[in-house]
């Protein structure tokens, strides 16, 4: 085969070789990924359109569903712990809405590759775009719930302070973390199609272990040090402390949250990328 040294000929050269276990070359992969981000955005946007969430009732349901759930949990916790009040409701609502963002990222992410079907079988593009699109979808389902949260926050007599803006940092961590987790479960789902059936149980337990139905400082004494091992403890805890109480969370939360987000993103996408060449033969 002519391996021409003239750089001209190889300008558009693409080489396809076996690479079972290895990773693709990062340079071209991420360049391609960035180039095609508009595709991921459009894919997510059209998915949302197809699911009719653009209609008034669709939007209403996006808000109503987590809101009703929040009420259910509020009553449950109120009965069990004799805690109550508007402020506590605001805490549950704030935590639960953002928890559902993560949970939706993971569960829609899980089916993003197996549900991609023909797109995956017929088109060559960085597959990481699929879980990323799923997280975008989850994010846009989360957005309409933010005003509701702020409303309840106000009704509960919550403070408004510039500190609340720090919550955005924790939201950013949750997005990064969500992408990593979505990529991980998306790849897992290709090999084990019952992954998505196990996820709800797992996610439910995770909800109870995270400071949504309880305050971060409620963590039992002997587990307090272990709490940083739960990524959502720092991220959701940080989100509610900043946006609801307007206090700056302790430094451990910042460190643990960002570490977890980065670890999830790197590990999840590396696992995904090492398997993605295999997807087309396994769908």
């Amino acid at each position: 085969m002519a391996h021409d040294t003239t750089p001209d000929w190889d300008a558009e050269l693409q080489v396809y070789e076996p690479h079972k276990a290895g990773l693709p070359r990062f340079g071209p992969y991420f360049r391609d990924l960035v180039d095609r981000l508009p595709f991921a955005a459009e894919f997510s946007r059209s998915g949302i359109r197809a699911a009719n969430t653009q209609t008034v009732f669709g939007q209403l349901w996006l808000v109503l569903n987590p809101l009703l759930l929040a009420c259910v949990y509020y009553i449950l916790v109120a009965i069990l712990t004799r805690r109550g009040g508007m402020e506590f409701l605001a805490h549950i609502v704030g935590g639960l809405f953002v928890y559902y963002f993560v949970s939706n990222s993971i569960s829609t992410g899980a089916s993003s590759v197996t549900g991609g079907g023909r797109l995956i079988m017929n088109m060559a593009f960085p597959r990481l775009l699929m879980p990323m699109a799923a997280v975008r979808t989850a994010f846009f389902r989360f957005l309409p719930t933010v005003p509701v949260y702020l409303l309840i926050h106000t009704l509960g007599g919550g403070v408004w302070s510039p500190t609340m803006l720090l919550g955005l940092v924790f939201l950013g961590m949750l997005v990064v973390f969500g992408i990593g987790m979505a990529a991980f479960v998306a790849a897992l789902q290709v090999y084990f199609r019952d992954t998505s059936s196990f996820l709800p149980y797992f996610l439910r337990i995770w909800l109870y272990l995270s400071p949504v139905l309880w305050y971060p400082q409620d963590a039992p004494e002997r587990f307090a040090d272990l709490m940083v091992l739960n990524p959502l403890y720092s991220m959701i805890g940080g989100w509610t402390e900043t946006t609801l109480q307007g206090v700056v969370p302790p430094v451990e939360m910042w460190v643990a949250g960002s570490l977890w987000a980065v670890v999830a993103l790197v590990a999840g996408s590396l696992f995904f990328m090492s398997r993605e060449r295999d997807f087309a033969v396994r769908l």
Binding site: M1, W9, D10, E12, L13, Q14, V15, Y16, E17, P18, H19, I120, M121, N122, M123, A124, R277, A280, V281
Partner: peptide, 20 residues
Amino acid sequence: RAIAGVLPPTKGRIEVRGKI
């Protein structure tokens, strides 16, 4: 599908010059 880059070859090498 192999030439389109969707399916990686199990063995061998495919070189493509240009947009498919």
